[in-house]
Design a protein around this nucleic acid. Structure first.
Lengths: 328, 328
DNA sequence: CTGAAAGCGCTTACAG
DNA sequence: CTGAAAGCGCTTACAG
């Protein structure tokens, strides 16, 4: 940073004022074609790039968006992050990544977001949501929740249509002739889990069926444990719906080990459609989250909130679709 | 950013000069205990945070580290990223994430790195390495390669001891009684692939064996295809070593579909030890990369290069260990 | 230890 | 369209 090329040096080489150099690099400013050419040539020659710190300081605008992630073990999130970074780049933003489990560092993470006065924050981590949301609001930094709903936060939030998706799944399993059902949920308090459970059990009840509800935490291990418990307590149902694909793999693995055949004895559905679900080891029937559209909408809500006043409340649900493979 | 609290306002409330406020927030500066208290109290009350843009501008030092990632489909990388972000946070740095496939955006990515004049860059993407490395050198931005070696780049680089690891794997398979061998490699040009192949085939040759070398690209699909080809061309060997875990899963899946039993008929080894390898569906024997130590060393090389002059050349190899599960 | 002042590299009214 | 100048919010010699 010591020997950085400044607009001044470009100006000197191009034989114009520093203001003119600046105008060439600020869109919307008017410069004559001749000046532009001279400046561009000099800039190219020197390898000039406007200093983003000076720019953000004077314009009082940040070109940084904070991405708060936590659960790296579910590929769903890294995949969404990739989509976020490339879409945001197209709009001229860079991404400040916040990605820690460490509770002690959480405060530091928020500090970073505030010190850079980021233009917006995408929160993909339910646990961070509440405290972080409070701070962001206090400092008037726009934020949006991704794949999470926290009603109290008063934030825009983008999710898949979890409830109707789960209803669709219930209907499919009924159509397949299933008569007894288990739902294996995710972490208590996670909105995705709550909505999926509500939809699944709701539809089953509407059709006159009951549902055995079990608790997991979105990990493979918790799915595995749930399945073992079904076996040990002799409550193996015709169908099992897991709140995400990863738990479904755990369930499948346990069944396979114990000789329970999927889909012949038990039909199994996951949720997310992450890459592995198409691998032959699982070949899992699941529900495809519309990740790309979720990302696009999240960005729109974050950066152009005025465009989206029409939504009822702040929660935006996007439709996905079932993807049936070998487990149903 | 319009209504940001500045040091001036804190100074006014605390009844001191703006310089004193600044001193309280710059470590190493001397302030009386009394002043510090007054300032801290006023700052707390107003929710003051030093503006990082102004700070970076005047100190000519960036607190940002660029993380260049590409392959999000291998969980190995997201996992390393998480470790990087938390370790860097402890040192007072934030992470600028660069994570795109889009070639058109690549130039923009580099621009971002340069505009923020980041304190350093970690490159985890082989294809970006060369062009990016050139630019970074030109602008004197320190960079380090992670899990990649690009000799020409003249950069520090941190990897697992791929070659000796592969030799160890060869010896294990020989000990298990295998007499014919296949290596399924990764993308041509990837140093990890090259080193692992060299070690594996080298050790086999030393012991009087040959090795069938096949080509993949680190994806599940390429492993799957390779295995099918082995079957179709009738070249099923006693042992198969895949350059990463994900390809090993693909190989396993193809074998399983075609009724070839692992490990009875074929012994299978992967590399990385990502989370899924411990799941029952694969229960894969593999080689554990020392990710945490690799990250720590990469950061040290990036930020304190003077401490590490002793290394021969710029390439740093760290030892890992075999993890034997059900496929050997 | 403390305050007044210079200056980091930009953008943007303001005159011309 | 263009240049001189002010100012964004800081840090840091420089005096005192």
């Amino acid at each position: 940073m010591e020997n950085q090329i400044t607009a001044h040096e470009v100006a000197k080489l191009a034989g114009v004022s520093q203001s003119s150099v600046s105008r060439v690099f600020t869109k919307g400013a008017s410069v004559s074609e001749k000046t532009r050419e001279k400046v561009l040539k000099a800039a190219e020659q020197l390898g000039y790039r406007p200093n983003e710190y000076a720019r953000s300081l004077i314009t009082r605008k940040s070109s940084l968006i904070g991405l708060v992630m936590k659960s790296v073990s579910n590929p769903f999130y890294p995949h969404a992050v990739k989509k976020f970074t490339s879409e945001l780049k197209k709009l001229g933003y860079s991404v400040l990544l916040i990605d820690t489990d460490d509770v002690e560092l959480q405060m530091q993470d928020i500090d970073a977001l505030l010190s850079y006065h980021v233009a917006g924050v995408v929160i993909m981590d339910a646990t961070a949501s509440f405290q972080t949301a409070e701070m962001l609001r206090r400092f008037r930094i726009p934020a949006v929740l991704f794949n999470r709903v926290v009603p109290a936060a008063g934030l825009h939030s983008v999710s898949c249509e979890n409830e109707s998706a789960a209803r669709e799944i219930a209907r499919l399993l009924i159509d397949r002739g299933c008569e007894s059902f288990t739902y294996v949920g995710g972490r208590e308090g996670a909105s995705t889990h709550i909505e999926r459970r509500r939809g699944f059990t709701g539809e089953l009840n509407d059709k006159g069926f009951t549902c055995n509800v079990m608790t997991g935490d979105f990990t493979h291990a918790s799915g595995y444990r749930a399945a073992l418990k079904m076996i040990e307590t002799n409550r193996i149902t015709d169908a099992v719906f897991a709140a995400n694909d990863i738990m479904a793999y755990g369930i499948f693995d346990a069944f396979r080990e114990r000789g329970i055949r999927v889909p012949e004895q038990v039909k199994l559905m996951g949720f997310d459609d992450i890459e592995m679900s198409s691998w032959p080891a699982y070949n899992l029937s699941t529900f495809v989250q519309p990740v790309d559209r979720m990302v696009t909408l999240a960005i729109e809500l974050l950066l152009y909130p005025e465009r989206s006043r029409k939504a009822d409340g702040n929660v935006h649900y996007l439709p996905g679709e079932m993807k049936l493979r070998g487990t149903t």
